[in-house]
Design a protein around this nucleic acid. Structure first.
Length: 276
DNA sequence: TACCAGGCTCCTT
DNA sequence: AAGGAGCATGGT
């Protein structure tokens, strides 16, 4: 691929660390080429990210798309400044100072996080890779993420053979629902709690998966996905574990404010999981 | 080898 | 409304 100057986004490494961004569990479709060098895939698009000590270069034929994708209009210094003052955040923000919350495709997030349920990240990546290989559109050097129509054309058996386990049924059912007109755009206009309930109408989507879709696919930042890692964080903060997901979620949103909850969650999640 | 993973559905109380 | 069993698979 030949890139002209107009295809390149060049920014400083202040508030941007591609390793942290890709490794904080919000995206499953990327490929490490070399140290600081990655292909990043979104829907049917791809970019090449090259990060050195001083600067980051993002090469793509869809420059505007990836500008928004990497959330480059947002000032993360300001977010980190506000969060640093809150309990247990100083170290987490320092550790993941290059994290950004990506603006990803809703459909891709929906399917990806159905697959994520009770699953390891390396295995999630494998299932999604095979899904794209088999059903994605051929883009020349890579395959796109499959459309809802493509996924709706396959049944549960197909997804079981991909290795999706008991999520196979959820994938087949949800793909059919979306291909059949279940609206993913109207979520934009909803408040987070209403949006969460709406997405939970889909088979395979529970409260946690819905929160992830809202955070990574709609950039709704007043949510707080609670998974096993956040449960460990909760124990660190409060000195005892809590088996009630709703209470954990509510207490942590209150602690970090509705304006910053989603960001706080990412710093805490990355810190806990990456250090493990 | 066991344990565990960015949990959910479904069935009982 | 709330709690718990069962669940497919493979990474570590």
């Amino acid at each position: 691929m030949i890139y002209t100057q107009a295809d390149i986004i060049e920014i400083s490494t202040q508030d941007f660390d591609i390793r942290q961004i890709l490794d904080c569990g919000q995206i499953f479709r990327y490929e490490k080429i070399d140290e600081g060098k990655y292909y990043v895939y979104s829907l049917d698009k791809r970019c090449l990210v090259e990060q050195s000590d001083a600067c980051v270069k993002i090469y793509s034929k869809d420059r505007e798309y990836f500008w928004h994708y990497f959330d480059l209009d947002r000032d993360y210094s300001k977010i980190k400044e506000s969060l640093r003052e809150k309990p247990f955040m100083a170290q987490a923000v320092e550790y993941g100072s290059g994290i950004r919350i990506l603006n990803q495709d809703r459909w891709e997030m929906l399917i990806s996080f159905i697959i994520s349920a009770n699953n390891h990240i390396p295995r999630i990546k494998g299932i999604i890779r095979r899904l794209c290989d088999k059903l994605g559109k051929d883009m020349g050097e890579y395959k796109s993420f499959p459309t809802a129509q493509a996924m709706a054309s396959k049944d549960e058996t197909f997804y079981a053979e991909l290795g999706a386990g008991y999520r196979a049924k959820y994938l087949a059912d949800t793909a059919k629902r979306v291909a059949d007109g279940f609206d993913l755009d109207c979520v934009n206009e909803m408040q987070a709690d209403q949006a969460n309930k709406y997405l939970c109408k889909l088979l395979g989507v529970g409260e946690k998966v819905a929160d992830c879709i809202l955070l990574f696919g709609y950039h709704k930042i007043d949510v707080f996905p609670v998974d096993t890692w956040i449960r460990k964080v909760y124990r660190d903060i409060f000195g005892e574990s809590c088996d009630n997901k709703k209470i954990i979620r509510e207490k942590l949103i209150n602690m970090y404010s509705k304006e910053l909850a989603g960001y706080a969650q990412q710093y805490l999640f990355f810190n806990k999981r990456d250090m493990n």
